[in-house]
């Protein structure tokens, strides 16, 4: 079982210092970088399947050159190797460039499954997985709460969370699966894992290596950030103390004055 997990370094949400720079691009120096939280869940799901079925887990990242630092953490969790697509031309990439680059990098790899996280905490779009699957014509199974590959039958079964419950999906492999947190908490790297990660391979690819020169990156972005502002202030908070009935009455009065009930 060979699984490729898409992982992205993002500003640490816990530092709460995410911001755009004067060029309206993400200011990556403002916060420490971590592996995107939802990608860690995808990686954990992949590692469990590798432990059960054997095989390898490759992490695939598109990011600036210093992403190797966060990739080492994913390798310390147990991934076999990493591939980093990095190129100055990719700064300011839109979703279209991102999925085109990652699809091209996947064409160079062999895999049974590709996993992506539900979304990233810096971009929030959650559409790159679907776009990659379409570009590679892979079966696309999203919102996975359970992933059961059947290597002998060559199929994967996924429990997909829906608005009203869940669907049981089935598709031939290779396929792309979007993972959710329901799959289970990511592990912490062990000391042994951290030591082993130091010598694991991280291959790098440029835009030219992927044959995409001029076709991708900030210069040909389909979308642009025009402006960035703080949300309007909400005004002062009214604080109510007293009995539970006092509190309930205050709530109902506010709901009525704003015509919510």
């Amino acid at each position: 079982m060979h699984i490729v997990v898409l992982t992205k370094p993002v500003p640490d949400p816990a530092a709460a210092a995410e911001r755009l720079g004067p060029d309206l691009r993400l200011d990556r120096a403002a916060s420490p970088a971590v592996v995107n939280g939802n990608d860690e869940y995808a990686l954990e799901a992949a590692l469990k399947l590798m432990e059960a079925h054997g095989g390898e887990v490759t992490i695939l990242t598109m990011a600036p050159p210093n992403a190797t630092d966060t990739m080492r953490k994913a390798l310390a969790m147990g991934a076999t190797r990493g591939v980093l697509v990095t190129d100055p031309a990719l700064a300011g990439s839109c979703v279209r460039s991102t999925d085109e680059v990652l699809a091209a990098a996947l064409r160079e790899l062999t895999y049974d499954l590709v996993f992506s996280g539900f979304d990233t905490s810096d971009g929030n779009a959650g559409v790159v997985g679907a776009a990659i699957a379409a570009r590679l014509r892979l079966p696309y199974l999203s919102n996975a709460a359970k992933i059961e590959p059947d290597p002998e039958a060559g199929v994967v079964r996924v429990r997909r969370i829906t608005a009203t419950g869940y669907d049981l999906l089935e598709a031939p492999m290779p396929a792309l699966v979007v993972c959710t947190q329901v799959l289970g908490e990511p592990r912490y790297p062990s000391l042994k894992g951290i030591m082993a990660a130091r010598s694991k391979e991280i291959a790098t690819r440029s835009v030219a290596d992927l044959g995409l020169e001029g076709a991708v990156g900030g210069a040909v972005a389909t979308t642009a950030v025009l402006d960035s502002q703080k949300p309007a202030s909400r005004g002062a908070t009214r604080v109510v103390r007293g009995t539970a009935e006092d509190g309930a009455r205050e709530i109902v009065e506010l709901l009525e004055s704003r015509r919510i009930v």
Binding site: R96, D99, A125, V127, A130, I132, T222, T223
Partner: peptide, 13 residues
């Protein structure tokens, strides 16, 4: 996401 790849157009989420 699928539509973005099929049309090559930008997507704003």
């Amino acid at each position: 996401g699928t539509l973005a790849a099929l049309t090559g157009r930008g997507v704003l989420a």
